[in-house]
Design a protein around this nucleic acid. Structure first.
Lengths: 152, 152
DNA sequence: CTAATCAGTACCGAATTGGTCCTGATTGAA
DNA sequence: TTCAATCAGGACCAATTCGGTACTGATTAG
């Protein structure tokens, strides 16, 4: 299976949980408790998502994180780019030109571009809001994995 | 970057090279020489692609492998499924139900299904023929990587 | 001034992946 | 019939990547 990294999966879970909760500022500890994702891992995610413009942060005693935009305005593509880098199945992609010195000559470029464009388009059409659903309680064991994949 | 495994990348390279060559039967050694992919690795690929119906094989002194269908009739989706398993970004996918016991309740299912379908569709619309191009000579160093990604 | 929380960086163990090796089976040619 | 060439199956290993953690510094409200 071609797959997203677990960390990206976690980010979507955490961010959709933030979108669902009332209140706007959430600490790493709160997010960890609600989603079952380990706190150090949530902290790590926030350190990538914040500079990418998807989260805003506030230091200090009343500090925490908030979604930078409403859930409807954050696409899965945004999240994937922030954590996994450019959306593509191979290094043959715009913006990754430094890895490909003969892009004009590569016989496969056309095929891969078609695929990469379709994937990007699909990820851009789904937002965090689409990933939210009824309130859901994470299982007690292997929670992060279970939650990320929707497992029982 | 969400990416295909290197082995899947190699398989596409090797198979498109086979499609380009005259003659229909190619040994592992020949394919390794033409593409720069190590022979044991090519052999490994063939052991997955053949049972999947993408290659036919013939043992014995005049043995080797051949594409099971013309290049136009082999999609990138076929190859990815044979090597990487079902096409999906997460375990939330039809056919992987054993990993998800609450698929009817999973709040994210709808979003992921849309994405997974789009990726499958994109991969099904590109064939091995689309990945072939002018005759191209692989570089001498790090050949498999260079070739697979079209790097100089 | 203190406690709570984010920010940056480095490190480590586990898992996965790429790659190899060995042996057995098959087949055509000598 | 024998032999060389090649595929088939399975196991194993090293390297790399990823998930996860830990520590220290900076910031902020009370």
């Amino acid at each position: 299976m071609i797959k997203l990294s677990k960390l990206t999966d976690y980010a979507i879970v955490v961010m959709s949980e933030m979108a669902r909760q009332t209140g706007t500022v959430h600490t790493v500890t709160q997010m960890a408790e609600r989603t079952g994702v380990p706190a150090p891992t949530v902290a790590k995610l926030m350190k990538s998502l914040t500079p990418a413009g998807l989260m805003t942060s506030h230091r200090g005693a009343a500090g925490g994180y908030a979604l930078a935009r409403p859930a409807e305005a954050i696409t899965i593509a945004d999240i994937v780019v922030a954590l996994d880098g450019p959306i593509a199945l191979t290094a043959c992609v715009e913006g990754a030109g430094e890895e490909c010195g003969v892009e004009n000559l590569c016989p496969m470029r056309g095929g891969w571009e078609k695929i990469n464009r379709a994937i990007r388009s699909a990820l851009e059409q789904v937002t965090l809001a689409d990933m939210m659903g009824p309130v859901w309680t994470p299982p007690a064991r292997e929670p992060a994995k279970a939650l990320a994949s929707g497992n029982a």
